[in-house]
Simulated scan of single mutants.
Amino acid sequence: MTAQHAEESAPYGNPALATLAAEVATAVEGVSGVAFLRPGLTDRLRSAVSRPGAAPAGVRMSRPDGDGPWQVEIQVVALRRARTVDVARGVRDTVARHLDALAPTRSAPRVTVTVTGLV
Rank of each mutant, 00 (worst) to 15 (best):
Y12Q: 15
E8H: 14
A57G: 13
P109D: 09
V95Q: 07
V77P: 05
A101N: 03
V115K: 03
R106P: 08
T2I: 00
R63H: 10
A16S: 04
E73S: 10
V24F: 09
R63E: 06
S47Y: 14
G66Y: 03
A16I: 09
G40M: 01
A27R: 00
S107E: 11
P64S: 05
A35F: 14
V113A: 13
V77T: 15
E29P: 12
G33E: 00
V34A: 15
A88W: 06
R110Q: 14
A82R: 12
A35L: 05
P11V: 14
S62Q: 01
V28I: 04
D93Q: 15
S47R: 11
A35Y: 15
R46P: 02
A103D: 05
A55C: 08
L37E: 13
A78K: 15
N14S: 12
P109K: 02
V113F: 12
G90L: 13
L17Y: 13
R38C: 07
R60A: 04
L17C: 05
G90H: 03
P64A: 01
E73R: 08
M61E: 06
T94R: 00
V76I: 03
V119F: 05
D93G: 05
L102N: 07
R92I: 08
P56D: 14
V111L: 01
A21P: 05
V34P: 07
R89Y: 09
L41S: 06
V24C: 15
R44G: 06
D43N: 02
A103T: 02
A6W: 10
T19K: 15
A22D: 07
A55Q: 02
P11Y: 10
R38Y: 13
V34Q: 01
V91C: 09
A22W: 13
A96R: 01
F36I: 08
R60H: 15
D93A: 06
P104V: 00
V85C: 01
T94L: 12
A78R: 06
G13V: 03
V72C: 08
V49I: 13
T84G: 07
A48Y: 12
Q4C: 04
L118D: 08
P52A: 05
T84Y: 10
I74G: 11
A16D: 09
D86C: 10
A78V: 04
R46Q: 10
V72R: 04
V72D: 04
E8V: 08
R110C: 05
P15D: 11
A88L: 04
D43V: 08
V119Q: 12
R97K: 13
T105G: 11
R92T: 01
A88F: 04
E73N: 09
R63G: 08
T105W: 13
P11N: 11
M61Q: 10
L45A: 10
L99I: 14
Q75T: 06
T116G: 13
A21I: 12
A16Y: 11
A82G: 13
P52H: 15
V59F: 08
V113I: 08
V31S: 04
T26W: 02
T105F: 07
G33R: 00
G68I: 00
V115Q: 00
A54S: 11
T112D: 04
T2M: 03
A88T: 04
V87N: 07
M1C: 11
G30F: 00
R97A: 02
G33N: 06
L79W: 05
E73H: 07
A48S: 07
L118G: 09
M61C: 02
L20F: 05
R106G: 09
